[in-house]
Amino acid sequence: MDLNLYFVLGLFQLSSVLATGQIPLKCFLKDFNFFNVLGETSCNEVPKANSLHFGTLLVNSTGFNIDGWIFEAKNVKYNGLDDAVLDEFGFNFSAKVLQLTFHTDMVVKCDYKSTGFLHSLPVNGEGFTEVTLKNLQMGYSIPFDIKEADGKNFIELKSFDNWYNIKDKTEFKFTSLTNKNKGLGDEVHQLMNQKWRYFTAHYGKNFMESLSEKIFSVFKNYVKPLSLKDFAEC
């Protein structure tokens, strides 16, 4: 290991978990210098061409079969990550773990087919749904290795553990969850939106796991071509 790499690793170790204030998540690599003090960032400038970009994350299908309610979702679209705010970011080179946390408002849309019962209420129908997650907070713990290629050292992300919390509110909207029975549909919507925390936690696990895997995949592909020198000079 050369002296330059020792220097870079030392700086990263000292700034293991860096609170970043209101730094956009999409700027946190190429448009943010980890070694500057809080607030000294180029994120207010025009983002560079290779800044992190999520766009709409698409999952072909997911769903659940829980407590007599079978819900099949297709063409699941997650929007909101390009407006996410970075809360913490840091490498721990002793443990070889990257820590990342951020928050955002997210809108999830999909086509669905529903059968069964929700708290004794029949939920048989198909259509389109939109779910808004207000102040979604997500955190990642990502083990990594350091690989050498072409005389440079690269970070290779291996897997991830993560957590999430919807801090403010979840809003559910279904076009036809009860075979166009408006009265029953209103009752179901009212129940779900009043008890949003329970319904999100109880029925939303597969949706959030799909989202977490997509985020990790985008992040892993973005970091892959960046050497440790790129991190130090960003």
Results as ranks from 00 to 15, higher is better:
residue 33 N to F: 05
residue 201 A to V: 10
residue 151 G to I: 13
residue 76 V to P: 00
residue 1 M to P: 15
residue 84 A to S: 09
residue 216 F to H: 15
residue 226 L to S: 09
residue 133 L to F: 10
residue 229 K to V: 11
residue 170 T to M: 10
residue 222 Y to F: 07
residue 8 V to K: 02
residue 154 F to N: 10
residue 25 L to C: 11
residue 144 F to S: 02
residue 174 F to N: 03
residue 109 K to H: 09
residue 183 G to T: 13
residue 85 V to W: 10
residue 133 L to K: 08
residue 53 H to M: 11
residue 206 N to P: 06
residue 28 F to C: 03
residue 32 F to C: 15
residue 24 P to L: 07
residue 113 K to H: 14
residue 176 S to Y: 06
residue 59 V to G: 00
residue 102 F to R: 00
residue 117 F to N: 08
residue 1 M to R: 15
residue 48 K to R: 06
residue 162 N to I: 04
residue 109 K to L: 09
residue 88 E to F: 06
residue 170 T to G: 00
residue 155 I to D: 01
residue 19 A to M: 05
residue 26 K to A: 02
residue 169 K to H: 12
residue 69 W to K: 04
residue 94 S to L: 13
residue 87 D to S: 08
residue 27 C to F: 00
residue 35 F to Q: 05
residue 82 D to P: 13
residue 183 G to K: 04
residue 121 L to M: 15
residue 20 T to V: 11
residue 83 D to H: 13
residue 95 A to T: 14
residue 13 Q to E: 13
residue 203 Y to R: 00
residue 1 M to L: 07
residue 175 T to I: 00
residue 184 L to K: 11
residue 24 P to Y: 15
residue 91 F to W: 03
residue 112 Y to A: 04
residue 109 K to D: 09
residue 26 K to I: 12
residue 116 G to T: 13
residue 70 I to G: 02
residue 125 G to C: 07
residue 97 V to P: 11
residue 42 S to K: 15
residue 3 L to I: 15
residue 63 G to A: 01
residue 44 N to H: 09
residue 84 A to V: 04
residue 115 T to H: 08
residue 220 K to P: 00
residue 62 T to I: 08
residue 223 V to W: 00
residue 13 Q to D: 14
residue 54 F to V: 01
residue 121 L to A: 10
residue 107 V to C: 07
residue 158 K to A: 04
residue 79 N to R: 12
residue 234 C to F: 09
residue 56 T to M: 02
residue 215 I to R: 06
residue 63 G to K: 06
residue 114 S to L: 03
residue 63 G to N: 04
residue 226 L to Q: 11
residue 157 L to R: 08
residue 177 L to T: 10
residue 34 F to Y: 07
residue 160 F to E: 00
residue 224 K to A: 10
residue 99 Q to H: 10
residue 31 D to P: 01
residue 211 L to F: 04
residue 157 L to Q: 10
residue 30 K to M: 08
residue 161 D to P: 02
residue 84 A to Y: 06
residue 115 T to A: 15
residue 18 L to D: 01
residue 220 K to H: 06
residue 81 L to K: 03
residue 103 H to E: 01
residue 77 K to Y: 03
residue 128 F to W: 14
residue 37 V to F: 04
residue 39 G to K: 11
residue 181 N to A: 02
residue 205 K to Y: 13
residue 207 F to A: 10
residue 20 T to Y: 05
residue 90 G to W: 08
residue 9 L to A: 12
residue 218 V to M: 05
residue 230 D to A: 07
residue 43 C to S: 07
residue 42 S to Q: 09
residue 230 D to G: 05
residue 46 V to W: 09
residue 58 L to C: 15
residue 185 G to F: 04
residue 151 G to N: 03
residue 22 Q to A: 01
